[in-house]
Design a protein around this nucleic acid. Structure first.
Length: 556
DNA sequence: TTACCATCAC
């Protein structure tokens, strides 16, 4: 019997096992009377979890009498990674009241689960437990806490935890640096990067990841390039992980050439590297190349996952060409992932944006599980087609399903009101959003509200809404208001706004463009000239040349 | 045997 054990053991340590092979291994373990051994049980449980078979994983857990902490951690992690947080927390509680002691990995895992479900209160409770269990100085727990607090935007608390550790290890330094990165506090991140080197800690590729994730616009390109240069100079190992981050960073900064060079430096790019390249091109507005590289990936035998399929669908939605979208739909069906919630939502959006609302609705109706994003997608699609009543009905359905609407839901609803000119409904949703759901109105919501009111001729109300906002008001909100004044030929109010803007914010491009067009349309060349003078004062701060071109056209 | 770190649909 022992002859069989060695090959089984070697199979158990391979992470890439399919579900059917896992079942065979499980049967072999049982046959060899090893299923009660927590070591073997843990191995099999993890294989089930990797293959998304939580039912078998749980069955195995329940059937194993001697539960090691490894087995406990594995089942808690399996549920958390599948976003089944309630089960995860219930098991965590059961563990605490059992005879087995939780260890640092248990807390790291459960802290991450709190973060994934955006539960600050629970995270604080877990933090308390960490201290209570005497793990207050543990590196694993604390690096998890640092990254969890900063992912929830509480970078001060993260920093507090970090400062409480005497001689942080590399993981802790990295967690803190990427914490600053994800909170947009780039300066602090770079300061810390310097400090760590001053105390003799050598950064690795992940330190660099922390520094450059989130570098989003071309003005920061030089920061990214400097850090990339640093990696090369210090001979840091640029693995797939790090290269993927570099690729997306360069693409976000619209530096396609450098992105492609980094990608090409990989001997065998993995799925995430391909995804970074493809989604990066798409997000930079180059959807054609995004689809091209997707075909390249299929050509070399790559197997795109659901995340990548959703992104390529978004690319064809942006192009508003249905053919590639249909092909991807077919691919998804052939590979059994068309029912995936991410892919389905992307399909709905793609069909709607390409002019096939019916098909989108069909996909929505066929979904077995729906989340906020699926509802948001279908609501905004219906709204775009002017089917406001249907969109509102979907919103009701969503509430009945106990799904909590978010800011995108309300943006979609307000957009639907806008497309159908439903002022009262729009006011009501706006009120509901701020008062009942405590969602802070963003630029997008305000633009819809201003348009909705303004297009209906309620210019005063729209103006009062904008005036009530804290300064500085985003230029697209002013733009929406000005274009409403323009189309209603309310030059009196336009004058008032123009005066206000020229006194307070003469530097923003978009409403100057609008104003110059309005003035030019009226033949008021003196005013156009005045704007030009203002532009001169603000020179160097203006983002583009479109405005000056508009002026030149007008003057001609 | 596990931790911190990459692509992400509206």
């Amino acid at each position: 019997m022992h002859i069989h054990l060695k090959p089984i053991l070697s199979h158990l340590t391979k992470p890439s096992q399919t579900l059917s092979r896992t079942r065979i291994l499980h049967a072999l373990i049982i046959k060899n009377r090893l299923s009660y051994d927590p070591f073997y049980a843990t191995r099999i449980l993890r294989l089930y979890a990797i293959n998304n078979d939580l039912i078998s994983a749980r069955y195995l857990f329940d059937k194993t009498p001697n539960r090691s902490i490894y087995l406990w951690n594995s089942i808690i992690r399996a549920y958390a990674q599948a976003n089944e947080f309630n089960d995860s927390f219930l098991l965590f509680k059961r563990l605490l009241s059992s005879e087995t002691q939780p260890d640092s990995h248990t807390f790291a895992c459960i802290a991450r689960a709190c973060t994934d479900r955006f539960d600050v209160r629970a995270l604080r409770l877990v933090h308390g437990k960490v201290v209570a269990f005497g793990l207050g100085l543990d590196f694993i727990c604390n690096s998890a806490l640092v990254s969890c607090y900063s992912k929830l935007g509480l970078v001060e608390e993260a920093s507090c935890v970090f400062r409480g550790i005497d001689k942080p290890d590399l993981a802790l330094w990295n967690a803190m640096i990427s914490g600053y990165g994800s909170c947009g506090d780039r300066v602090k991140g770079i300061e810390l990067f310097n400090t760590m080197q001053n105390v003799g800690m050598r950064p690795d590729g992940y330190t660099v990841v922390g520094l450059i994730t989130g570098l989003a616009d071309d003005s920061l390109l030089n920061v990214g390039q400097t850090i990339h240069g640093f990696c090369v100079k210090c001979g840091l190992i640029l693995n797939h992980h790090v290269c993927s981050v570099l690729v997306s960073m360069y693409l976000r900064c619209k530096n396609m050439g450098s992105a492609f060079r980094v990608f090409e430096s990989l001997v065998q790019p993995d799925l995430v590297s391909w995804s970074s390249l493809i989604t990066g091109f798409s997000q930079a507005g180059d959807h054609v190349n995004a689809l091209f590289f997707f075909r390249e990936l299929l050509g070399v035998g790559g197997r795109p996952d659901t995340v990548l399929l959703a992104s390529v669908l978004a690319a064809s939605a942006q192009l508003a060409i249905v053919r590639p979208g249909c092909e991807i739909h077919g691919y998804a069906v052939r590979h059994g992932c068309n029912m995936d919630i991410t892919v389905s939502s992307a399909l709905i959006d793609m069909y709607a944006k390409c002019g096939f609302l019916e098909m989108g609705i069909k996909v929505f109706n066929s979904m077995t599980k729906r989340n906020v994003v699926s509802y948001n997608t279908v609501i905004s699609s219906l709204g775009l087609y002017g089917c406001a009543a249907e969109a509102f009905r979907m919103f009701e359905e969503m509430l009945n399903e106990d799904l909590k609407p978010d800011e995108t839901t309300f943006a979609a609803l307000l957009c639907a009101c806008c497309h159908s000119g439903l002022v009262n409904e729009g006011r009501e949703y706006f009120r509901m959003m701020t008062n009942e759901f405590r969602i802070h109105a963003k630029t997008e919501h305000l633009v819809h509200m201003v348009k909705l009111l303004g297009m209906d001729g309620k210019l005063e109300e729209a103006y009062n809404l904008v005036k009530s906002l804290p300064e500085p008001v985003n230029s697209s909100i002013w733009g929406a208001l000005l274009s409403c004044c323009d189309s209603h030929k309310n030059y009196e109010l336009l004058e008032v706004i123009a005066k206000h803007l020229n006194e307070n914010e003469p530097k923003i491009c978009s409403y100057n463009v609008m104003l110059s067009n309005v003035f030019a349309g009226d033949g008021r060349w003196d005013d156009v000239q005045q704007l030009r003078v203002n532009y001169g004062q603000a020179e160097g701060k203006m983002p583009g040349v479109s405005w000056i071109n508009d002026i030149n056209k007008s003057v001609k």
